[in-house]
Amino acid sequence: MSTTTINTQKVNFNVFRFNADEDYLPYYENYSMDVTSEEVVLDILNRIKWDHDGSFSYRRSCRHGICGTCAIKVNGRVTLACKESMTDMIEIFGNELTIEPLSKKRAIKDMIIDKADFWEKHEAVTPYLDTEIDENPTAENLVTPAQANALDEADLCIQCGACHYACPVVEISDAFMGPAAFAAAYRFEADVRDGNDSRLTDVNQMGSGVWDCVKCFECAEACPKEINPIEKIGKLHNMLFQSGQANSNVATRHAVGFEKSIKRNGVLDEGGLVLYSELAGIVKHVPVALKMFSKGKIVPPWGIIKSDNLDEIQKLVKSSSTAKF
């Protein structure tokens, strides 16, 4: 019979405390505990409540990583408390850990936040199969494995909010729908059974649209179900171009401008790209551009060193292009 040694370590927890009914500002309470290697973050939340302060508040339910209620932040890292091992947390961050809610500015009580913005944005993308149902079908409604794979695991989302509150754009801009809402939109757009023909247009037009993603990959890193929301945002971009719904705006021209520049030079013409993307809006870049020019940071179109074997690149752009604008 093998024996398992459970290592115990002393860990200091700095825990965010706030009660919106009583406190003007949040504060941090310190708890020092012996932590065993088999514990998960949720065990620590439980022990704070059971052993230290019964008023400590947090959400939890299934303890199996499926209900999505217990997401919080440990040292800034979004984590599903019931899934995240304490051993991993100590390995990454050491023995001083800060426990905070998903969004400090939305805190109601300790770890509990007002998730209304998340749910409003989620609801806005029509996150369900929208289709005419034949009540007297004569055959099975078959979905092939390839069609099912097209969802690319977007259907695994548990609406925990980890990606949403890890997104720096959501933090700054209320108009941005966020990675979770976009992943949900993709999940149903990619479903062969779905018949909603306005969702893609809606998503493109609501709030600040689909183009404000900063491409930081925080959402991909945060998702406990490894759904990779940023990849789904990219797929929505592709869908908009493919369906001819990508209106000409600074973001779409910015994406298309790369192809134009590559076709002409192989490399990018940085100034040309900004001009093509902004059109008349280029004016607002003039002050910074002048400063950059004075420091030798702007190469005029005739000074650009084109890629060697440019004919190859041009041939490939011609033969491999799959999109039109």
Binding site: K215, G234, F241, T252, F258, E259, S261, I262, S320, T322
Partner: peptide
């Protein structure tokens, strides 16, 4: 690598993913 083209800077793929891969 003087023959190299632009990588697409994570924007070209929003327009044309396959072309970005080829380049």
């Amino acid at each position: 690598l003087t023959e190299a083209s632009c990588c697409g800077a994570s924007h070209l793929q929003d327009y044309d993913d396959f072309l970005s891969l080829v380049l």
